[in-house]
């Protein structure tokens, strides 16, 4: 099994470094919006970077943004699945173990969703934000349904077009438009309710 080594078109170490440095902060914030935990978000970004470098590190630089976004979204989804499986097992074990039978069953996604207006999701990094508006926008983004948030951020923060967003999310272009439209409506309504106009 032979290997080709057309280094001219492939990402060099410095190009990959430059690319990762350019996306790591936004990737971290995206993961933070989704998983709502600082360390988990860092783990998600680290996993995504490793997967990109190990599997696609030799791809042309132009392909890296799309590949990275797809990997990032899949890694976030894998986190959700693992979280749900772990929570299911904990629930099952809790019902078996003595002294825990009376406790109410909890949906993992419910426990992840911060209450409206609460300070639950505020972590250390949020305290350095000097703009209340940014904090409010971030809070509203966290409360969006995951697919709507994913589509909205990919389209407008990562500046992918509809086709690229659909590819990164693994859905149809129509679904992307629907998710973006709903996310925009929800965000605009929420901000307006708080008296904020952009």
């Amino acid at each position: 099994m032979g290997e080709i080594s057309e280094d001219i078109d492939l990402a060099s170490r410095s190009e990959l470094d430059e690319f990762l440095a350019s996306v790591e902060r936004r990737a971290y914030k995206q993961a933070r919006f989704a998983v709502r935990d600082e360390q988990a978000a860092l783990d998600v970004v680290q996993d995504s970077m490793l997967k990109l470098a190990e599997k696609y590190g030799a791809k042309p630089p132009a392909e890296l943004p799309m590949l990275f976004q797809r990997i990032l979204q899949n890694t976030i989804r894998d986190y959700y699945r693992r979280y749900k499986v772990r929570a299911t097992w904990v629930t099952q074990l809790s019902s078996i173990l003595p002294g825990r039978a009376g406790e109410e069953e909890t949906d993992p996604l419910e426990t992840m969703a911060p209450a409206d207006g609460s300070q639950q999701a505020l972590g250390p990094s949020d305290h350095v934000q000097n703009s209340q508006l940014i904090v409010l926008i971030e809070e509203e983004l966290k409360t969006l349904p995951p697919r709507q948030r994913e589509a909205f951020l990919l389209r407008y923060w990562e500046e992918l077009d509809v086709a690229e967003t659909a590819h990164a999310m693994g859905c149809s272009e129509g679904s992307v438009k629907t998710h973006c439209s709903r996310a925009t409506h929800t965000l605009a309504t929420a901000l307006k309710r708080k008296g904020i106009t952009l």
Binding site: I4, A21, E24, L50, E54, A58
Partner: peptide, 20 residues
Amino acid sequence: QLKRAREQALTRQRVTEPAF
């Protein structure tokens, strides 16, 4: 931490594209 993650990823970068 992000920088460390990036550097770790770079050490594992695939440098050639497999033909098959």
